[in-house]
Each structure stands twice: as structure tokens, then as C-alpha cells.
Amino acid sequence: MGVAGCGKSTVGAAVAAAQQLPLVEGDDFHSAASRAKMAAGIPLTDTDRAQWLVTLGGQLAAHPDGVVLTCSALKKAYRDQLRAAATGLRFVFLEIDRESALQRVGSRGSHFFSASLVDSQFATLESPVGEPGVLRADALAPIEQLRQDVAAWLQDKDPA
């Protein structure tokens, strides 16, 4: 989880492959209307995200043996909704600074998310640090290091 450009898709894919779990890309479940808003540089509202979060919760519930889900989960209420769908759900918070996120999003090419929305992502973000079942990770660390850190953390039966 984290703001646009933090590496959710890349890290999620690496973790899913290493853990031999299915990968669910949260962006694939945005409605056409939400995608159009984001492409136009219009931030999503809680109302825009409501059905998306229900759908993602359904994806979590459909994989009782485990799944890696990439999702911004910017607000505590969003994370709590996802936790309600999957007992024991954990979040890897890929923390990144604004400038690095802007640079990464700007270099994506054909992705539907407008770089102009990065500031709104930071404005919406409610840090999950201190919530149970959250690993804070440096989004700028090498992917292999992140994969190893997440794997070690997942082995812990009582995560911080």
C-alpha cells in the first residue's frame, strides 16, 4: 500500500512470486468512470472508492489461502474495510517522498494515473505506521531487499 509511484505493483509481483501466491492488482478493479477521472487529473473521492473497496474485499475473501493485493489503501477507514474482509490481513506500507513519487509516476508512459494527482495522494494519506500488522518499508530500497524484508516479516506469526 502507499501513494502512486511507491512501487506497489513491482513489489507486489515480486512478493507474490516468491511466496507462490496469486497477485491481485487493485488498479485492475477501478471502474471506467474512476479511471477517466484519474486520467483527467481529478482525484477520487470516498464515494468513488466505495465500490472498489468492496470489490477488493471480495477478492481478499475469495483467496482464503493467501493473496498479494496491490492497493493504495490511503485512509485508515479503507484499511479497516479491507481488514474486515480478511482476518489477519497485513499491509506493507511503501513509504516514499513526494519528489520521488512524482518522478516515478511521470515516467510511466501510458498508465491512466495522471502525475498531477500525486499531491492529492499525499494529502489523502493517513499513515498506517503504528497500526497492527503494518510493515513500514523504504520504497526506494532495491526490490530484492524489499522482497526479502517482506518475506521475513511474513514469517513472523505476531507482526508489529
Rank of each mutant, 00 (worst) to 15 (best):
M1D: 08
V3C: 12
C6I: 11
S9G: 13
A14L: 11
A16S: 11
A16K: 02
A18D: 15
L21M: 09
P22W: 15
D28N: 14
D28A: 15
H30S: 13
S31M: 03
S31C: 05
S31D: 03
A32N: 01
A32S: 07
A33N: 01
R35T: 14
A36Y: 02
K37M: 07
K37A: 03
A39N: 09
I42V: 11
T45Y: 13
T45K: 10
D46F: 07
V54S: 15
G58V: 12
L60Y: 00
A61I: 10
H63K: 11
D65N: 11
V68N: 01
L69N: 06
L69M: 06
T70S: 08
S72W: 00
Q81L: 03
G88E: 00
F93A: 12
F93T: 04
I96K: 09
R98H: 14
R98Q: 14
E99K: 08
R104F: 06
R104G: 09
S107V: 03
H111Q: 13
A115T: 11
V118I: 04
D119N: 07
F122N: 12
F122C: 10
A123I: 03
T124Q: 04
E126D: 15
V129C: 11
G133C: 00
V134N: 05
R136N: 08
R136C: 10
R136Q: 10
A139Q: 10
A139H: 07
L140E: 15
A141P: 03
A141G: 02
P142G: 02
E144F: 04
E144K: 10
Q148A: 11
Q148I: 07
V150T: 09
A151V: 03
A152Y: 02
A152C: 09
W153G: 00
W153A: 00
P159F: 02
A160R: 10
